[in-house]
Design a binder for these strands. Structure first.
Length: 568
RNA sequence: UACCUCGUGGUGUAACGGUAACACAGGAGAUUCUGGAUCUCUUAUUCAAGGUUCGAAUCCUUGCGAGGUAGCCA
């Protein structure tokens, strides 16, 4: 559960191979400079973690002649907000990465970007167009037909310059004119059909305020920002593949750039039972299907954090999934495996009975209290041991008792015996029910000779070992059982709205779980394994001193549940 | 029927002209004071057809399939 990303050996992939080849060719003076360029218009999700681990990971692998910049791609003030800037920085740091001094904003370059635009105009490579958005669409042509030139395409340089300056000074209405690159309206790649470079947009920018009323487009700002920061490898997702010729065009046609970046694309992460687009995540939040961006069911980094995932597990997962150009969907089981691996080694163990049944041990003296010793983590002796109180009345899990047991059930049954973990064995003598026939209590007896794992000669060793809490000492706490947010592997498949695939049981709140007393002091943000149940995280927002709230991170692997499911 | 990209077990990846492998998931067993963990074993793979080659997942050709692209979003 280390909080920093150690530079552990990364698997080779086509990006790393390419960088190795560049280095071997003596490119960039042996430097590797990458960037993570989020737009501050939403919270980061697990797919971004893949990109973060890649870009920052590459910098770590190539130290000391390397670095990774955090650059906010804030060229569309209409959608962006400082709330998102803050959350993004928090998430990147939490994942264990550090951009050091290299925090940038595309808006830092607005002045330079503007000068470059004038330069392109001077070279006859850009022009101001008066076409409306609708006309522009008509002139662009279609995927199979070429576009046609705008009537304004051949304006003189001086006229273009004058118009562009007047766009900047606010002389024209929003949308009245745009600056376009002059490339080729018949180009088979739509991105090369005189793409827009600048639009007029009167919106308050989170950093530049009202200084500008024209804003550069992503396609224009991104390559030039990369070049201005001397980025060597600009890594993005597959949907930008078709933009690469434009990226190259700009890098090749703008003079005075300090760097020569290359763009390369990789496949974005898809996860089963998950949606990953910011737009859809925003909708889940806005429509109240979840409690917020950091709802533990969300695929956001803040959601996973609040669920109890660790940075190490997410980094590990990112390493496992690799990097290719093939569009794939990763089984969420891989992610769950990563968090179980981490938490198994590092989470403290505790006893919690989620759905209690009362057990009375008839031959245990009333009023007597003893303490049994339990290791805090059997995987890590240095975690120490604790004393767990025990008395005549206990709670055990409803699932650990069956009045009419099915074949293969190893736990408590009428007349049968189980071991109370770290204590002794009990035999169920009587099942007490209320008028409605609900079980209210189990009357049992214990055998003192079975303490400390011992079994008396000639008696079969009980196969079942169950957890328990002392009724007198336990306290009640809220426990939130989170499950997958969607019922389908691919919530976006088919014609139906993805909202219709929401899992109605993705959250179950338990209010009378009985927890062992040591949990009363659980610190917000602490990880536990509730033995035989799952991994739980003390909710950092809703826990109060003395009244912790627990979120289920992930259940334990449960081969008995699998067995039961098979027979159904 | 434009352009670009991609096709390896159920899933994610590796193999860089030389025995198709790893992890997860699935199955069987051992072990265990967590039906957890651990350990062993196991099921299952190169889109297709041609070609080059002593030898092809890899190179070539053709076909098939999947995805992306027509914002003044990123």
């Amino acid at each position: 559960m280390s909080d920093t990303a150690a530079s552990s050996p990364a698997r080779s992939d086509f990006i790393r191979d390419m960088i190795a080849a560049d280095l071997a060719d003596g490119r960039n003076d042996g430097w590797v400079i990458t960037r993570f360029p989020p737009e501050p218009n939403g919270y980061l999700h697990i797919g971004h973690a893949k990109s973060i681990c890649l870009n920052f990971g590459l910098a770590q692998e190539h130290a000391p002649r390397s670095r990774c910049h955090l650059r906010f791609d804030d060229t569309n003030p209409a959608k962006e907000d400082t709330e998102y800037v803050d959350s993004i920085m928090e998430d990147v740091r939490w994942l264990g990465f550090d951009w050091g001094e290299h925090l940038f904003y595309a808006s830092d370059y607005f002045d330079k970007l503007y000068e470059f635009a004038e330069q392109l105009i001077q070279k006859g490579l850009a022009y101001v167009d008066d076409l409306t958005a609708e006309q522009l669409r008509e002139y662009r042509g279609t995927l199979t037909e070429p576009g046609k030139n705008s009537p304004h395409r051949d304006r003189g340089i001086e006229e273009n310059l004058d118009l562009f300056r007047r766009m900047k000074t606010g002389e024209f209405a929003d949308g009245a004119k745009i600056l376009r690159a002059k490339i080729d309206m018949a180009h088979p790649n739509m991105n090369m059909r005189d793409p827009a470079l600048y639009r007029i947009l009167r919106a308050h920018h989170h950093r530049t305020g009202d200084k500008w009323c024209i804003y550069p487009m992503y396609d224009y700002a991104h390559p030039l920002s990369d070049a201005l920061e001397s980025i060597t490898h600009s890594l993005c997702t597959l949907e930008f593949e078709d933009h690469r010729p434009l990226y190259e065009w700009l890098i090749n046609n703008v003079d005075g750039l300090p760097g020569r970046p290359y763009q390369r694309e990789f496949a974005r992460l898809n996860l089963t039972y998950t949606v990953m687009s910011k737009r859809k995540l925003l909708r889940l939040v806005k429509e109240g299907h979840v409690a917020g961006w950091d709802d533990p069911r969300m695929s956001t980094i803040s959601g996973f954090r609040r669920r109890g995932y660790t940075p190490a597990a997410i980094r590990d997962f990112c390493k496992t999934i690799g990097l290719t150009k093939f569009k794939s969907t990763t089984d969420v089981a891989l992610l769950e495996h990563a968090i179980r691996e981490d938490l198994n080694k590092n989470a403290l163990r505790a006893y919690a009975v989620l759905r209690p049944i009362k057990v009375v041990i008839e031959n245990y003296p009333e009023g007597r209290v003893e303490h049994v010793e339990a290791p805090n983590n059997p995987e890590d002796e240095s975690a120490g041991k604790r004393q767990v109180p025990l008395c005549r009345e206990l709670h055990i899990e409803q699932d650990d008792f069956m009045e009419n047991p099915v074949a293969g059930f190893h736990r408590l049954v009428p007349g049968g015996e189980v071991r109370l973990k770290f204590a002794f064995c009990i035999i169920c003598k009587e099942v007490v029910k209320d008028a409605a026939g609900n079980i209210t209590e189990l009357r049992c007896t214990y055998d003192d000779a079975t303490r400390h794992g011992k079994k008396p000669e000639g008696r079969p060793k009980p196969k079942g070992i169950i957890h328990w809490v002392s009724a007198q000492h336990a306290f009640e706490a809220e426990v939130r059982l989170y499950d997958r947010l969607f019922v389908n592997e691919d919530p976006e498949a088919g014609d139906a709205d993805f909202i219709s695939n929401l899992n109605p049981h993705s959250l179950e709140v338990l209010t009378n779980a009985k927890l062992e007393p040591s949990l009363k002091d659980a610190k917000p943000g602490a990880h536990y394994q509730f033995e035989r149940v799952g991994y739980f995280f003390t909710d950092p927002k809703d826990s109060q001193p003395g009244t912790p709230v627990f979120n289920r991170t992930v259940g334990l692997k449960d081969s008995w549940a699998k067995e039961v499911a098979k027979t159904k």
